[in-house]
């Protein structure tokens, strides 16, 4: 029986995989891909809850999340491009200007 828990577990799995990607990728764009997966998982969660509790709010929330995610990706990639122009690299290991 595919209940709410199945979807939630699925979302949790995708979230963890996305987190793994964020933690291990060296390329900045790769990290952003991981973030995408995490946000996706969140969306699945929201829609599942909305469906199983009969509440519209979750769906609205999902729409907004998608829109905001798009904006975030755009700006993030713009930053990556700007960094690339100056540093000629997008290796996350080399971007450590905030080092203490």
């Amino acid at each position: 029986m595919i209940g709410l828990s199945s979807y939630l577990v699925l979302a949790a799995l995708v979230f963890s995989i996305g987190l793994f990607g964020v933690l291990t990728r060296r390329n900045a764009v790769g990290i952003l891909l991981g973030i995408e997966l995490m946000l996706n998982a969140v969306n699945i969660n929201l829609v599942a809850f909305a469906r199983f509790h009969g509440d519209l709010t979750g769906l609205i929330f999902t729409l907004f999340t998608i829109a905001i995610t798009v904006v975030e990706v755009a700006v993030g990639l713009a930053i990556v491009i700007a960094i690339f122009r100056v540093w000629r690299t997008v290796d996350a290991d080399r971007l450590d200007l905030l080092r203490g």
């Binding site: 987190l19 990728r25 990290i31 290991d93 450590d96 200007l97 203490g100």
Partner: peptide
């Protein structure tokens, strides 16, 4: 303790996790 601040964003994500 200074060395915790590596300046790399991913290490900070480790911290958040």
């Amino acid at each position: 303790l200074r060395h915790i601040q590596t300046g790399r964003a991913q290490d900070y994500v480790y911290g958040v996790a």
